[in-house]
Amino acid sequence: MDKSIKNTSITSKKNEANEGRRNMMKMTGASVIALGLSTIVSTQAFAQSSLKLSDEWDKKFAKSNKVDHKKVTFKNRYGITLVADLYQPKDASGQLPAIVVGGPFGAVKEQSSGLYAQTMAERGFVTLAFDPSYTGESGGEPRNIASPDINTEDFSAAVDCIGIQENVDRERIGMIGVCGWGGMALNAVAVDKRVKAVVTSTMYDMTRVMSKGYNDSVTLEQRAQVLAQLNQQRWQDANNGTPAYQAPYNVLKGGESQFMVDYHEYYMTPRGYHPRAVNSGNAWSQTTPLSFINMPILTYIKEISPRPILFIHGEKAHSRYFSETAYENAAEPKELMIIPGASHIDLYDQMDVIPFDKLTSFFKQHLA
């Protein structure tokens, strides 16, 4: 890898993030901690419905004629039923290596994770892209909440599911985490020794950004204020018997930082919009940040070793520092691949930017 690219200053990204942070702080301190994707106002709680699985191909990518696809369900350790798409190479024989895929944060399997899964299935792997608990087609009530613990467990439950498929060699299972689920994937692999290799793409450490803001700019005093606000929200939720939700970030008002515009471009236009995605005009619960603020997920990243980690990030991504810090803290074997000119969301769906050849060679080597 070009060292000059790896060591490129991230000052411009910090300035952009600072501009976005100033805009968001005008609204509410909790917006910074909640990724700045929505403001905190009371909205009606989402109703939970029984699992109703879609039979149509409603993905944001074309169906491949090189793989077989089917929808599967399985339970995690907490008894929540998860829904996933299982992709398998057509006409493959014998026991195959497998890859579990999750992310981005607030997305569904019909978006980026499904694209990664189908593409890697075309390249010879059995793959599984899943909806995390409380989101998409998966179960869990109330809707649209996240948990660093439960969502880490979702990855291991997906390993359970793919590992019992008849054509999968359970000694050759890998994992891919995209965006906010990249950090969850690392957290899962640290404790799940069944996973032999892990890749993160355009990774976010959700516990870091929710507790410290972008570029760790939130002070102890600001965090205390946010926690006090969230604690008061708990009283309101308890009185109402149902959680309040953040306002959807679905309209650009002008003056947003470029990465906020990029998120809108993906989630709220035909490029990536999906009605079940939290980020596509829906919203997280207001109190979702609480457990993230209190639980750093990458504490034990060194314990992934001696299993290999590949970090992939865009040169121009506002989030690049998450991968760089994780890379520094991880033990060997590890690799950081910076994609020249790429933004954060380029690695969601741009087939000419996502380094699928590198992903393929990495997993073929380490799941051999």
Rank of each mutant, 00 (worst) to 15 (best):
Y204D: 10
K316G: 05
A107V: 06
A129N: 09
L86G: 05
E265H: 14
T207V: 01
D349P: 01
S112P: 07
D346V: 02
E110I: 03
K302E: 15
A34F: 09
V108N: 05
N250Y: 09
T39A: 14
G174V: 00
D154R: 00
K3C: 09
I309G: 04
K60F: 02
N282G: 03
D68G: 10
Y321A: 04
P89D: 14
P306Y: 13
G182E: 15
A30I: 03
N65W: 01
L53I: 14
M206K: 01
N239E: 10
A238I: 05
S211M: 05
N294Y: 12
F362L: 00
I293Y: 11
Y78V: 00
P132E: 10
D91E: 15
Y87G: 00
S133F: 03
I40R: 04
P355W: 07
R320K: 09
S201M: 10
S280H: 08
H264W: 13
M25W: 09
Y214F: 13
R170C: 06
V278L: 04
I173H: 11
N23T: 11
G241M: 06
L53D: 11
D349H: 11
K70L: 06
K193H: 14
D349I: 00
I176Q: 06
M120D: 13
D192T: 02
K358T: 13
Y273K: 09
I293S: 08
P340N: 10
R22F: 11
S49F: 09
A326N: 11
S42H: 15
G180H: 10
P355S: 10
V226Y: 08
M184Q: 14
